[in-house]
C-alpha cells in the first residue's frame, strides 16, 4: 500500500520533468516524424494525408524523362557527411587527447584556467568564428600577408573553399567538445595506475593502449559523440568556408524546408539521420555498460 503510494508520489513529483521532456523534446520530434509521412504541400507546408512518398524518394528517383532508377545520390550525401564528420572526429581526438592529457596533469588551479581557455571560443557566435577563419586563410588574409611580408609569399597555398578548409573549420569548432569530456575523464584517471603499468614493463605505447585508453573510454566515446553529432549535421561551416560545393546532410534538410518547399522530404531525411545517429549514439552506452561490469 504505502510503497504504491510512494511510487505514485514519485511519479507525480517527476511530473514537471516529464512535461519538460515530453513538451520540449518529444513533441517536436514526433511532429517531425509525422511530417515525414505526409504529402508535400503546394508551396511549403504539408497536406495532412498519410504518405510514404518522402521515404520512397530517398531511394528511388524518377528522372526528368520519366525513367525510375535507384537513387544513390542521397546515400552518397549521407556518406560524404559521415566521412567528413568522422574525419573531423578523428582529428579532434588526435589533437584533443594530448591537449586534454596535458591539462589533466596540471595542478587544479592551472587546470581550470586552461579549461576555461579551451571553452572561450564558445562565447562567440559560430558564424563569427567561421568568418574569423576566412580572415586568416584568405588571399589577403593573415597567413598570406605574414608570408609575403617575410618575402615567402610563394609558400602560401589558399585552402579556403576546399574540403581542407571544411575540416579545419569543423575541427576548430568542435575541438572543445572533445577536449572537455576527455579532460574530466583523464582527471579521474589515477596516475598510480600509469606508474603501475610502467613498473610492470609497459612501454609508453602500451601504457596508452592497455591502461589509459581503456580507462578513459567513456570520455573518449562521449567526446566523439559530442563532436560527430553536430559535425554530421553542420551546414554552416561547409557553406561558408567550404564554398558550399559539397552538399551535406544538414544542407539537404535546410534546402527541403527552404527553397525546395518539400517539407515531408526534409523531415524524412531528418528522421533517417536521427536513426543513424541514434545507432551511433548507443555505442558509448554499450561501452559504458561493458565497463559498468567493472565498476
Amino acid at each position: 500500500m504505502s510503497s504504491a503510494r510512494a511510487r505514485t508520489n514519485r511519479v507525480l513529483g517527476l511530473a514537471p520533468v516529464w512535461l519538460l521532456i515530453g513538451g520540449l523534446l518529444l513533441a517536436p520530434l514526433l511532429l517531425v516524424v509525422a511530417i515525414a509521412f505526409t504529402e508535400q504541400g503546394a508551396y511549403g507546408g504539408v497536406d495532412w494525408t498519410f504518405s510514404g512518398a518522402a521515404f520512397v524518394s530517398l531511394l528511388y528517383n524518377v528522372d526528368f524523362d520519366g525513367t525510375a532508377s535507384v537513387e544513390w545520390s542521397y546515400v552518397q550525401i549521407f556518406l560524404t557527411s559521415a566521412a567528413l564528420a568522422g574525419a573531423t572526429t578523428a582529428i579532434c581526438l588526435l589533437v584533443g587527447f594530448p591537449v586534454a592529457y596535458f591539462i589533466s596533469r596540471q595542478p587544479p588551479s592551472r587546470r581550470s584556467v586552461l579549461m576555461l581557455l579551451v571553452a572561450i571560443p564558445f562565447w562567440t557566435d559560430l558564424l563569427v568564428r567561421i568568418y574569423a577563419w576566412m580572415i586568416i586563410l584568405g588571399n589577403d588574409g593573415l597567413i598570406a600577408s605574414a608570408l609575403s611580408a617575410l618575402g615567402a609569399g610563394w609558400l602560401y597555398r589558399n585552402i579556403l573553399f576546399t574540403p581542407k578548409a571544411i575540416l579545419l573549420g569543423m575541427t576548430y569548432n568542435y575541438l572543445p567538445l572533445m577536449i572537455l569530456p576527455l579532460c574530466s575523464s583523464l582527471e579521474k584517471l589515477d596516475g598510480r595506475l600509469i606508474e603501475a603499468a610502467a613498473d610492470l614493463y609497459a612501454s609508453r605505447w602500451s601504457r596508452m593502449k592497455d591502461v589509459i585508453i581503456p580507462l578513459t573510454a567513456p570520455g573518449i566515446a562521449a567526446g566523439c559523440m559530442l563532436v560527430f553529432i553536430p559535425a554530421v549535421g553542420d551546414f554552416v561551416t561547409p557553406t561558408i568556408i567550404g564554398g558550399g560545393k559539397t552538399l551535406l546532410f544538414g544542407n539537404l534538410v535546410a534546402l527541403q524546408f527552404g527553397s525546395a518547399h518539400n517539407w515531408p522530404f526534409g523531415a524524412a531525411i531528418a528522421v533517417v539521420m536521427l536513426l543513424l545517429i541514434g545507432c551511433a549514439g548507443t555505442l558509448p552506452l554499450l561501452i559504458r555498460r561493458r565497463l559498468g561490469r567493472v565498476a
Partner: peptide, 17 residues
C-alpha cells in the same frame, strides 16, 4: 619499465578494467 624491480603500491593500484 626497464628495471627488473616491481612495486606493490600502497593502495595496490590494481587495473580496474
Amino acid at each position: 619499465e626497464a628495471r627488473s624491480i616491481n612495486t606493490v603500491f600502497q593502495h595496490y593500484a590494481l587495473f580496474p578494467h
